Measured scan of single mutants.
Amino acid sequence: VSEWTEYKTADGKTYYYNNRTWESTWEKPQ
């Protein structure tokens, strides 16, 4: 699942961004 990158927002929430599909999600990808 290497295309997903984990980021943190300014208020400390974690989200995930897909470099291949430009998708972002709050849930941890499978």
Rank of each mutant, 00 (worst) to 15 (best):
E27S: 07
Y7W: 10
S24Y: 15
Y7M: 15
E27T: 11
V1P: 14
S24L: 15
A10G: 07
S24M: 15
E27V: 13
T14W: 04
N18I: 01
R20Y: 14
E23S: 04
K8E: 05
D11M: 03
W4K: 00
K28P: 14
Q30Y: 10
V1L: 13
E23M: 04
T14K: 07
T21V: 03
T21M: 02
W22E: 15
E23P: 02
W22A: 15
T25R: 11
E6A: 09
K28F: 09
N18W: 03
Y7H: 11
Q30C: 15
E27M: 05
E27I: 11
T14E: 03
T14A: 05
R20P: 04
T5P: 00
Q30I: 14
E23G: 02
P29A: 03
G12V: 00
E6Y: 05
E3W: 04
R20W: 15
R20H: 13
T5D: 05
V1R: 11
T5G: 05
Y16G: 00
W26Q: 09
T9S: 09
T25D: 05
T21A: 03
E23D: 06
N19S: 12
K8Y: 08
E3P: 09
Y16P: 00
T9W: 02
Q30A: 14
T21H: 05
A10T: 08
Y17F: 15
W4M: 01
T9Y: 05
Y15P: 00
K28G: 06
K13V: 10
P29L: 04
E27Q: 11
E3G: 09
Y16A: 00
A10V: 11
N18S: 02
E6P: 04
S24A: 12
S2G: 14
W26A: 10
T9D: 11
K28T: 08
K28E: 08
E23H: 03
W26H: 11
T25G: 05
T5L: 10
K28V: 12
N18K: 03
E3T: 05
Y7S: 06
A10E: 10
E3V: 06
V1A: 13
K13L: 11
E23Y: 06
P29R: 03
T21S: 06
E23A: 04
E6L: 05
K13W: 07
T14H: 06
W22M: 15
G12L: 00
S24K: 14
T5I: 14
Y17W: 14
Y7K: 12
P29E: 04
P29F: 06
D11V: 02
W4Q: 01
D11Y: 06
R20T: 14
Y17E: 03
T5S: 11
N19D: 06
G12T: 00
T25Y: 13
S24D: 07
N19I: 12
W26L: 08
T9E: 01
N19R: 06
W26T: 12
Q30H: 13
Y16E: 01
N18V: 02
T21I: 03
K8R: 12
A10P: 13
Y15N: 00
Y7V: 11
S24F: 15
E6I: 06
E23V: 07
S2M: 12
E6K: 06
E27H: 10
E27R: 04
W22N: 15
E3Y: 07
S2D: 13
A10L: 11
N18P: 02
W26F: 15
G12K: 00
T5H: 09
T9M: 05
V1M: 14
K13S: 06
T25E: 05
A10W: 09
K13D: 08
T21Y: 05
T14M: 08
T5Y: 10
T25W: 11
D11R: 02
Y17K: 06
P29V: 04
Y17L: 10
A10R: 09
A10N: 10
W26E: 11
Y7E: 05
Y15Q: 03
S2H: 10
K13H: 08
A10I: 12
S2E: 14
Y7D: 01
K28D: 11
E3S: 02
Y16D: 00
K28S: 12
T5A: 11
W26R: 03
T14S: 10
W22T: 14
K13A: 07
N19F: 08
Y15W: 13
V1H: 14
S24W: 15
D11E: 12
T14Q: 04
W4P: 02
G12D: 03
G12F: 00
Y17V: 15
Y15D: 01
S2R: 08
K28A: 12
G12E: 00
E23T: 08
T25L: 09
S2P: 12
E6W: 07
Y15I: 09
T9H: 04
Y16W: 15
Q30M: 13
R20S: 12
T5Q: 10
R20K: 14
T21F: 05
E3D: 14
K8S: 07
D11F: 05
A10Q: 11
E27N: 07
D11N: 08
Y7L: 13
V1Q: 14
Y17M: 10
N19G: 07
W22I: 04
K13Q: 13
D11G: 08
W26K: 03
T14C: 03
V1Y: 15
S2I: 12
T14R: 03
E3F: 08
K8H: 09
T5F: 09
E6D: 02
K8T: 13
K8M: 11
T25V: 14
K28H: 10
K13P: 00
T21E: 03
V1W: 14
Y16V: 00
S2L: 10
E27D: 12
P29H: 04
V1N: 12
K28R: 09
R20V: 14
S2Q: 11
W26D: 11
E27W: 09
W4H: 01
K13T: 08
K28W: 09
R20I: 15
T9G: 12
Y15S: 01
Y15K: 06
S2Y: 09
